[in-house]
Nucleic acid binder design. Structure first.
Length: 276
DNA sequence: TAATGGTGAGAACTTACATCA
DNA sequence: TATGATGTAAGTTCTCACCAT
């Protein structure tokens, strides 16, 4: 079931299930424009409310999908390190990054060599793709840095790499993966949130369907007593049943068409959605 | 207790795309 | 407008640690 399902009844009423977003959070994008600005929904931070509506067909429904700019760091040039591996050799040459490697200054290359020794010295061979396990201290410092900014500019990357005794490329990769994990986690949270919303709305939808059914039944029954003069219709204040005001023998006949007990109509104004 | 297979986490890599000069 | 450089997201591959058997 989607979040934009509508049930059109032959009564001219529409039961709609939708999502509305009163406001949405927009992550401020840094001074310079950067990576692809893809829509990024964060349902748990958005002022977001599922909605069920019961109305006339022909009404417009729909939900606005906010477009949120992803966070973006400084895009100063030059990626200082390009690690190659037996698995990446072919595509590395076809990649645009190859050129970057070529453009490294001799100083930068020297920095790379120095920092590379740290973790490369125990490699089996030139083609080994050794998996480095970051120490607790390294991870902690990276985490701390990530809290401050989820993206790094080249200077920050260099400094952090020096501090951690890692290659700048490793720091860069760590930040990429960290951002990915953060997003994945957020997606999972959003997913759970939407599941709950869906359940709530499904229940509400079911209840409204039931009420709609009752209304339709009522509409069919209506003509039978609507023929009577309005003055003859009275409502019992205690049980809220409609009576005819006729006493005696006729009263018992007419009371057969009494209204059902007070219906539990859903009122969106006095009974706001309990969803989420 | 050592060997083995399954599995999850995460480091490293590739590709596609947006942006800017 | 076309092009190359660059950074990032998304997806994939691969390694390693851990656990059950």
């Amino acid at each position: 079931m989607g979040f934009d399902d509508h049930i059109v009844c032959n009564t001219g009423l529409v039961l709609g299930l939708g999502l509305t977003s009163a406001t949405h959070e927009e992550i401020p994008s840094p001074s310079k424009a950067g990576p692809p600005k893809k829509p990024c929904l964060n349902f748990t931070t958005m002022n977001f409310e599922p909605s069920l509506t019961l109305g006339l067909s022909g009404e417009g429904y729909g939900h606005q999908v906010p477009k949120i700019d992803v966070n973006r760091g400084c895009d100063e040039p030059v990626d200082l390190y390009r690690q190659t591996s037996p698995h990446s050799a072919v595509s590395s040459f076809s990649s645009g990054r190859v050129k970057r490697e070529r453009d490294l200054s001799s100083e930068e290359i020297e920095v790379e060599r120095v920092s590379s020794r740290v973790s490369d010295e125990d490699e089996d061979g030139p083609n080994a793709r050794k998996k480095l396990r970051l120490t607790k201290e390294q991870s902690a410092l990276l985490e701390e840095s990530f809290k401050q900014h989820s993206t790094l500019n080249p200077k920050q990357k260099q400094a952090l790499a020096r501090q951690l005794n890692l290659r700048p490329r490793q720091v860069e990769v760590w930040f990429q993966n960290r951002r990915a994990r953060t997003k994945l986690k957020q997606t999972e949270v959003d997913c759970e949130f939407l599941k709950k919303c869906c359940e709530t709305l499904t229940d509400e939808n079911r209840r409204l369907q039931k009420e709609l059914h009752e209304l339709k039944a009522l509409k069919l029954a209506q003509p039978l007593y609507m023929h009577m003069p309005a003055a003859t219709l009275t409502m019992c204040p205690s049980c809220e049943r409609i009576g005819s005001g006729v006493v005696g023998e006729n009263a018992s006949k007419i009371s057969t068409f009494s209204m059902a007990p007070k219906s539990h109509f859903y009122n969106p104004f006095t009974n706001p959605s309990a969803a989420c």
